[in-house]
Design a protein around this nucleic acid. Structure first.
Length: 595
RNA sequence: GCUGCUGUGGCACAGUCGGUAGCGCACCUCAUUGGUAGUGAGGAGGUCACCGGUUCGAUUCCGGUCAGCAGCUCCA
């Protein structure tokens, strides 16, 4: 594909850049179509994205409907058919500003002011449409063969919520119609494994307006998974010397004033409850409680590291628009722990936390993640605790550990917690934006605020350092991730229903009940389908609705041979087992935690 | 929270250019006793999210509220 660069020359485009250029040019063509249909539209930014492009624009008071999008799409097709050439011309800064102002493009004019002095300001034009842009672009509109407008939403000018909200039209573009069809197929599949949908289908959790939005409730089958996760991670932690505690879901306002959370996050907390002479809030996090546990008794350096863990219920008043099933709710359960360590122990403890994270990911087969070293923005004097020396020390310490451990990571400025830098491990859900699954945060700040001490070997009082860490993050979110990764086909050890016994007919009912009871007595999560239905139908519903790992089919044949026929979810193969041999196999498999 | 879209039985959807609604799955009953992805017949279930307005009449049109979805912002 030939493209037009902003110095005017045309050249074959590097393969890896082609799609981006095509998509960005699609944004221009869309803008042209919009301008034809709604001449008083003013444009802001219109970049290429992962699968397509968007363009932010000011449409005045106009709201776009799906029909409007179709009309824009049709106009775009016309423009493609007209096969207009893309042309490029540069202008001086003054001329550029003047041209944009003449055309009413105030956002573009403002943008010129943000550009570096030495940059050459270029314009691209196809037909009657002119757009200030650094390019490069396709050479003719006919190069655009497969695109679709996917939706309209709002976005703030320059991503700042103080600014005017513009209309963003999103679209996708590909080289060919086949690729577009492929993309649409992938999107449909992603939607089908959205944890909210599967959660409802499999009866894992529910919400109800009368309970309140953002407050999911786990049903028996969802809670079965939950309990497995809780037991799993607590056992791992116990092996590593963690001690688990249980603390209340409320605390006084004073507690959060002491920690500093009050100043930063009170808008996102459920409002204060004032009773007798005290003021309480539902707790949004557990650090302060754990700090007080540490402070409950004096500590020697010999006690450290002290690892306090809790599967803790937290409440955050998240903005309504950010709620998303069990991925982000207003109540959730953290797999939280605070490690109280001496400065010398930081490296070893961070490294042990990182090991634990990856050990757990291995158990769950999680391979698609990204590590981020989240640093403070030194310019932001409001959000971050002000102590340059402390930040310097903490960020350097965390970075050094990550380097020593040979972990691949990117650094992101302004992503730190107010009290310290973080290592975040991020994943991408089936639908929606990337989020953090695990985190490990280095904190020199809260221990000082709570005046925590230990007596060092030289008999002097010193302040410990705290590592905040969450491995499964919140159990809710982790479960959301697992649902989407497995499409509800949980591994045997997690499956809410591990085994389903299906009777062929009434003649085998008694035998089926006996098998069912035997498995239940083994502590297995088993169900019996003794409905008056055909075996094919029972298999279908066990597969489709409940995604049961093992189906046991029992009929007259099995009674005669005193065995069971086991159908495997993965292979759809049926194998004959004695009940004892099957129990042995299943226990074995659960122990191994892998399939 | 902001912008936009959506809201019809438990679920997934039709439909009504204004005259109070249907299909499939699920559910219940009966018959069928069946062997590896849907046995047949019958039945029950909805004041079309809620509140107001327009109208002889609103599920349908208009306004508001609530909820869901997408994006933005945010995520200790």
């Amino acid at each position: 594909m030939k493209i037009l660069y902003n110095d005017g020359h045309v050249e074959e485009c590097a393969k890896e850049m082609e799609l981006e250029v095509l998509r960005h040019s699609t944004a221009h063509i869309m803008a042209q179509a919009v301008k034809r249909l709604y001449p008083d539209t003013h444009f802001a930014y219109g970049p290429a994205t992962d699968n397509g492009f968007y363009y932010d624009m000011d449409l005045g008071d106009r709201a776009l409907s799906d029909d409007d999008l179709t009309a824009i799409e049709d106009e775009m097709k016309k423009i493609v058919k007209e096969n207009l050439p893309f042309k490029m011309f540069p202008l001086s800064r003054e001329e550029a500003v003047q041209l944009m102002q003449e055309r009413g493009e105030t956002y573009k004019a403002e943008h010129i002011g943000d550009l570096p002095e030495d940059v050459v300001i270029t314009f691209y034009q196809q037909g009657e449409y002119i757009d200030m842009c650094r390019g490069p672009h396709i050479t003719y509109t006919k190069a655009l063969k497969a695109f679709k407008l996917t939706g309209v939403s709002g976005a703030y000018w320059k991503n700042n919520k103080e600014n005017k909200m513009l209309t963003r039209i999103n679209g996708v573009a590909f080289f060919s119609k086949d690729e577009l069809a492929d993309y649409e197929k992938r999107m449909a599949e992603a939607k089908a494994r959205d944890h909210r949908r599967i959660g409802r289908q499999m009866k894992l959790f529910m919400t109800d307006d009368l309970i309140g939005k953002g407050l999911p409730m786990f049903l028996p089958k969802g809670y079965a998974i939950w309990q497995q996760l809780e037991d799993y991670i607590k056992e791992k932690e116990q092996m590593l010397g963690y001690q688990h505690v249980m603390t209340p879901c409320v605390g006084t306002v004073g507690l959060y004033q002491t920690s500093g959370h009050w100043a930063h996050y009170k808008e996102n907390m459920f409002p204060v409850m004032e009773l007798e002479d005290e003021a309480f809030v539902l707790r949004p996090m557990n650090c302060p409680h754990h700090m007080m546990i540490y402070a409950n008794q004096p500590h020697s350096y010999r006690d450290l590291p002290l690892r306090i863990g809790e599967i803790a219920h937290d409440f955050r008043f998240e903005p309504s628009g950010t709620l998303k099933g069990i991925e982000r709710g207003r109540h959730f359960c953290q797999n939280d722990a605070h490690l109280f360590v001496t400065p010398e122990q930081i490296k070893e403890e961070v490294s042990s936390v990182v090991d634990l994270i990856f050990d757990v990911y291995k158990d769950f087969g999680i391979t698609d993640y990204r590590c981020v070293l989240s640093l403070r923005d030194p310019e932001d004097k409001v959000k971050y605790y002000q102590d340059d020396e402390m930040w310097q020390r903490a960020e350097t310490a965390l970075r050094d550990v990550l380097k020593d451990l040979d972990i691949e990571f990117t650094e992101e400025i302004g992503e730190a917690a107010f009290y310290g830098p973080k290592l975040d491990v991020n994943v991408r859900p089936a639908v929606g934006a990337e989020y953090t699954l695990s985190t490990c945060q280095l904190d020199f700040c809260l221990p000082a605020k709570f005046d925590l001490k230990y007596i060092d070997s030289d008999s002097t009082e010193k302040t410990p350092v705290v590592l905040h860490r969450a491995i499964l993050g919140s159990l809710d979110r982790f479960m959301a991730y697992l649902i989407e990764e497995t499409k509800g086909n949980f591994p045997l050890w997690l499956a809410p229903v591990q085994i389903k016994v299906l009777s062929v007919s009434e003649k085998s009912l008694d035998y089926a009940r006996k098998v069912y009871q035997t498995l239940r007595d083994e502590g297995l999560r088993v169900e019996l389908d003794d409905r008056n239905e055909k075996i094919g139908y029972k298999i279908r519903s066990a597969r489709q609705d409940e995604k049961v790992p093992y189906m046991i089919i029992v009929g007259e044949k099995e009674i005669e041979q005193n065995n069971i026929s086991v159908r495997d979810r993965e292979t759809n193969q049926t194998t004959a087992y004695s009940v004892e041999a099957f129990i042995e196999k299943v226990h074995q498999e659960i122990q191994n935690h892998s399939r």
